[in-house]
């Protein structure tokens, strides 16, 4: 019974088209559309738009900073390489300078030695000559002595000369 009763409700509810309902529906829908657009979806859309822009901006910034970092690291590498080269060059220079200095020092030492040697030789020669001179002087006096001794014996001038020379020679060889 209930079911049959409900069917009649169905027909009643189907009814017809009610003009005022339609007008009310249209009015409410338009007002609702304007209101939610202004107060709800508008702000939400704005926020989403803002977020999109923000994310895009952030991505761009990140890309930029990455490129910058890459550039900086490249520069640093370049600088490091340059510095290394410079250091190498400095070491090289120092080495060369050292070698040169060493050679200079050796050269100087050598020339000093040679000079000293020469001086020594000159001294020796000098001394030798001096000694010879002294000897000759001495020989003169000696010869006088000898002569005075030989006078007792008979001695020729030639013998005397020979005697002196022999003596000198002997002394020279000894020196």
């Amino acid at each position: 019974m209930h079911i049959f009763a409900n069917y009649s409700m169905v027909y009643a509810a189907l009814g017809g088209l009610h003009v005022i309902d339609m007008a009310v529906q249209l009015f409410f829908f338009i007002v609702l559309l304007l209101l939610v657009k202004k107060f709800a979806w508008g702000p939400v859309m704005n926020m989403m738009q803002k977020r999109e822009e923000y994310v895009a901006g952030e991505i761009e910034a990140a890309e930029n900073s990455r490129a910058e970092a890459e550039k900086a690291s490249k520069e640093a590498l370049e600088q490091l390489k340059q510095t290394k080269q410079e250091a190498q060059k400095i070491i090289e220079d120092a080495k060369n300078a050292g070698v040169r200095q060493e050679q200079d020092i050796i050269e100087a030492a050598r020339s000093e030695a040679a000079r000293i040697q020469e001086a020594a030789q000159a001294d020796i020669q000098n001394e030798k000559e001096k000694a010879l001179q002294a000897l000759q002087d001495k020989v003169a006096s000696l010869s006088v002595l000898i002569a005075s001794k030989v006078i007792e014996k008979e001695i020729s001038a030639q013998d005397q000369e020979k005697l002196i020379n022999d003596y000198i020679k002997e002394v020279g060889e000894e020196l």
Binding site: H18, V19, I20, Q25
Partner: peptide, 12 residues
């Protein structure tokens, strides 16, 4: 001109 008041109520 007719109106179903329940519709008006529910629309609102």
């Amino acid at each position: 001109l007719s109106v179903n008041l329940s519709n008006v109520l529910m629309i609102a």
